[in-house]
Design a protein around this nucleic acid. Structure first.
Length: 438
RNA sequence: GUCCCUAUCGUCUAGCCCGGUCUAGGACAUUGGAUUUUCAUUCCAAGAACCGGGGUUCGAAUCCCCGUGGGGACGCCA
């Protein structure tokens, strides 16, 4: 264990924003990299609403991303309470310290902090030295008696022994207020590290909760792999400098440091995120893929997988190398579990463009019917020789057979697919396809 | 408006600190090929960038200044 202590201090608003998630992630990475402690502290000063439910959104999201905290809600710790709503007494004490030093005064029923008026230099781990003067006194307690963010944030960081403050660059200028407070308390200054913001994929400004892809919940619902989302987020504003992007988290943890953090803001790119997801999906061991594929198909569609576990397993194994994401998987496997599958009109058009595909389908039907063994190699060999005898390209047969049996122009490997489906089903589907697609 | 940060392909970025090895590298996306087994896979290839202007220097993507663009902060929100 090192003495590094970092924290993630979200306010439970009912959303877990992708920017917040990345801030949590970078804090977590730094804690894990250094062997330090990752604290989760809840900034719920605005607590009249259903914050238990709102809090769960954040906790669930963090758990989903694998960001486990060492101190905080549910796990406790020696620096609690970890809810600001329960720290009121502490804030009063710290206010008295400022009062006794002549740094706090009442005004309009509120309490204000008296700034020094001197330029403060922030020694930021990412941005270097940033010099700025905080000119105006600012409120630290509202006229309704509740403490203000800048004050509680600093007090909590002092009380909790936070050594490194890693947060969004939108706080860069706020930091002057915080430095003033740390100095006024005579407390040791944590090291600050500001990280660049995540911008909208198009248009202007930073990602807001209304932008597509902005909420972690979206990825949970779409059955993204949390490892993939986390991996992508790591690469948004941080660079491992080893030329790699897709990496296991252990490797990222060992490489993570402030020098790899980029200074300029990054635009969110959902296509690249999708790519990370696909790569992680492909790399999954078969049994893991089967498990999440099952969950995705069962939760997102009306498909009844049935009880034949061996069959289900074969289907998912076949689809894994072709599956781009879990969202499209149900439509990719539907025909394996139901004879009532739709025929893709664009696919039909493509296949019917040249020649007479139904005639070839009829030929293929005869060959498949009379095949001795209905396994992938025999099927392949039989159709190839059929094509050769007819003086045609074998693909002219492959395409129409696939379309008749699955309703699609593309999909998993054709021959193992036919083998898994079985002769009986293949023949009956071809039989009824003539009237459906003709 | 004031202050702060930032600026390399459409996007994420390497290179910049310690100027020459940069005809600027990788990834995503795009386009085109290949795998004489379909295909949504895989492989190969192509196009695509140093914001502008000054300066320093024998030499600048790299250092300095000024513009401009982008972002953020200026709440009794967090």
């Amino acid at each position: 264990m090192s003495n590094v202590r970092v924290r993630f201090a979200p306010s439970p608003t009912g959303f877990f924003h992708i920017g917040s998630a990345r801030t949590a992630l970078f804090n977590w990475l730094y804690a894990r990299h250094t062997g330090g402690t990752f604290v989760l502290r809840i900034e719920d000063t605005d607590s009249e609403r259903n914050s238990e439910e709102y809090l769960n959104v954040i906790k669930d999201g963090m758990k989903w991303l694998g960001l486990d905290w060492d101190e905080g809600p549910d796990v406790g710790g020696n620096f609690g309470p970890y809810f600001q709503s329960k720290r009121d007494g502490i804030y009063r004490e710290y206010l008295e310290i400022l009062r006794s030093k002549g740094r706090a005064y009442d005004k309009d029923g509120a309490v204000f902090f008296k700034v020094s008026g001197e330029p403060q230099v922030l020694h930021d781990a990412v941005y270097g030295d940033v010099e700025r003067v905080e000119e105006k006194d600012f409120p630290i307690f509202r006229s309704n008696g509740t403490p203000v963010f800048h004050f509680v944030n600093v007090v909590d960081d002092i009380c909790m022994g936070i050594t490194n403050v890693i947060r969004g660059q939108d706080h860069l200028t706020n930091t002057n207020k915080h430095i003033e407070l740390f100095k006024a308390f005579g407390a040791p200054m944590p090291q600050f590290a500001h990280i660049p913001l995540i911008l909208k994929s198009e248009g202007q400004g930073k990602m807001s909760k209304r932008d597509r892809g902005a909420l972690i919940e979206e990825y949970q619902v779409k059955n993204f792999m949390p490892e993939a989302v986390r991996n992508y987020l790591c690469m948004l504003g941080w660079n491992p400098k080893n030329g790699k992007e897709i990496m296991p988290i252990e490797e990222i943890i060992s490489l993570f440091d402030f020098s790899g953090i980029v200074k300029s803001n990054a635009r969110f790119d959902e296509r690249k995120m999708a790519h990370f997801n696909t790569e992680h999906l492909r790399a999954l061991p078969r049994d893991k893929f089967r498990a999440i594929a099952r969950r995705a198909v069962e939760s997102e569609s009306d498909i009844d997988l049935g009880k034949d576990e061996a069959y289900i397993g074969k289907v998912f194994d076949l689809c894994q190398p072709k599956a781009a994401n879990m969202e499209s998987l149900p439509s990719m496997v539907r025909y394996f579990f139901s004879d009532d599958y739709p025929f893709d009109s664009a696919g039909r058009e493509k296949i019917f463009k040249k020649g007479d595909p139904l005639a070839r389908l009829a030929e293929a039907f005869e060959v498949l019917k009379n095949l001795e063994s209905f396994d992938k190699d025999s099927i392949y060999a039989a159709i190839c020789s059929l094509a050769e005898n007819a003086g045609r390209k074998s693909s002219e047969y492959f395409q129409i057979v696939r379309f008749a049996v699955t309703g699609q122009a593309g999909g998993p490997d054709l021959f193992p697919m036919l083998e898994i489906l079985g002769r009986e089903r293949v023949l009956s589907r071809i039989g009824s396809a003539f009237s459906k697609i003709g």
